[in-house]
Design a protein around this nucleic acid. Structure first.
Lengths: 190, 190
DNA sequence: CATTCGGGTTCCCTGAAGGAACCTATCCGA
DNA sequence: TCGGATAGGTTCCTTCAGGGAACCCGAATG
């Protein structure tokens, strides 16, 4: 975990990574969403220090990503479950998994597969445009400033860069072409 | 960053987070993919310690996610650029950003917007099934063991759990229903 | 000839991760 | 009634990585 808090940076990636940008947190959410809910099971599965696990779970509960609930009174037993906010981190896990599968699976093949219950098939989740459903990649997107954006810690250079990019090409098509030209130039020019 | 290496865990999420599960790494990739390529710009933009930035960049180059290249000889100047492997981390960044936008944007609105150049519209990237194109969520997927899976550190409990799940319901439809039933039961029950 | 710039490296200090032991409450079996 | 097991942590100590600032080096610039 970073010592400098990223929660106040005007960037949703920074805000998300402030919580999620810790290796254990991702694996804890993987386990909880897969069906491992108990402290000891998590500790045993991950091989994590119990102290660190307790700290991570407390943070995740505090952030509203998990809930801690008593599932039996005698003896008192607790478990951790994902909230809606936590369940939506599934998308991040799928993206990480797809990337890991692609670049690190090696000869043995992927360690796990995902079955999409809506169509019944094994799937590799892809990132798609919410409007047209087409693939979203670094090459076919451009980032523009948003209403909540500001220049500050974590966006000291990025803020002005996006603002300049928006000013240079206020029309969608122009922004698109400028960004693509830059990307193409980047690829050839190295 | 975690002290215990996750690179050897039989889980693509663990392998991906071993590299990417560090708050700074995500932000460095955000910047490089957005167009910030120089050491000083990265250091200034992020407010990161120069020492840590140097270590992160070296790791990312070593992993083949970035390349370090000289863009001018006199005086010698270096810059960092994303490889194909690095550019594909864009999907992870999009998922993090979408989640951060949804849960932390607040009144001010999202700090940045994404324009999808293929359709020309501002988009919220979604995670979709590679086959049917439908949405992929925690609720409509189930995880099954894959060829490269094994029980070991990081999957001590998870491995057997997935194996049992697959054994209980070897058919796709059955696996689907079992997983959904469990998910529903989880919400009401224990 | 001093300054600036880009791209780092070195130093020390603090705080978080690892690891193991310990604690509490309850149940189970002999 | 005692011993042990189980679940869910907490406490303690050590080590190591992050933060911050200073420093360094080669090349251009005034």
């Amino acid at each position: 975990m970073t010592r400098t808090s990223l929660a106040d940076v005007a960037c949703s990636i920074a805000r998300a990574t402030d919580l999620f940008g810790d290796a254990w947190t991702a694996l804890i959410m993987r386990d909880v969403l897969t069906g491992i809910h108990r402290f000891d099971d998590l500790a045993h599965d991950l091989g994590i220090s119990r102290k660190v696990l307790a700290a991570r779970l407390a943070r995740l509960v505090e952030e509203g990503v998990l809930v801690r609930e008593r599932y039996q009174e005698h003896p008192p037993r607790e478990q951790y479950r994902a909230t809606e906010k936590g369940a939506e981190l599934h998308a991040v896990l799928m993206a990480l998994m797809a990337w890991g599968d692609r670049w690190y699976a090696g000869e043995a093949g992927p360690p796990a597969r995902i079955r999409h219950l809506d169509c019944g098939r094994e799937t590799t989740p892809v990132t798609a445009c919410g409007h047209c459903g087409g693939p979203v990649t670094a090459a076919n997107t451009t980032e523009l400033p948003g209403p909540g954006g500001r220049t500050g810690p974590g966006t000291q250079v990025l803020g002005p860069l996006l603002a300049a990019r928006a000013a240079r090409a206020p029309q969608a098509a122009q922004a698109a072409q400028a960004a693509q030209a830059e990307y193409a130039a980047d690829d050839t020019g190295r």
